[in-house]
Amino acid sequence: MTTEQILAFASGAGYTILLTVVSVFFGSILGLLLALFRVSKNNVLNGISWFYIWIFRGTPLFMQIMVIYYALPIATLNAFGNAWTLGPFQSATLALSLNTAAYLAETIRGAIQSIDKGQMEAATALGMSYNQAMFKIIIPQSYRRLLPPVGNEFIMLLKDSSLVSAIGMTETLRVARVMANGTGRAVYYLYAAAIYLALTTIFTLVFQKLEKKYSAYE
């Protein structure tokens, strides 16, 4: 590979990482919020969360990316006479965040509900409010149970970020495709695969470390 190609791959990998990190961040916040809605006794919040998950888990991620990037400007132009346009990066992170939030919400809800209900009782008997009990007692205990499925979800997200090459983001896969098409050599796809593997391995190792840390009290 030439230096130029190496730099292109580095930049592609950088975008893959950036897409993943930003989407993990916003997806986790939204996912936690949706999970709290789901376990709350408020029917409206519960319904909102249910509907959200129904939509974003029930339609293809690829389609969601398309809708946000291509369909949103058209729809807003028709509706308000003003096209609401998002760049490729904003569209990509928005779609990935929204999508991953739906999956995380269900995972977090499951983990919260798996905590013995005696914990909530003990906390409220000590005078804690529902929110205090949730954030100090219940959610911290769910970390350990959350880590394996959340690790899974983040790895999926990292790989799924390759879908955004379709809207012109020059992330890892697009770099490989451009080089392969330009040179007629397939080996660039192998380089891309190696980059994805390296990145997912890092995720795997980090999550293994975290699991060890959070099982200290068990």
Binding site: G118, Q119, E121, A122, G127, Y217
Partner: peptide, 21 residues
């Protein structure tokens, strides 16, 4: 209600200690 309840200390059959603390 929380204030009044916290004047009552409760001990459970299953202890319900917080395992992460």
């Amino acid at each position: 209600v929380s204030q009044l309840c916290s004047e009552l200390g409760m001990v459970f059959q299953q202890f319900n200690l917080f395992p992460h603390m």
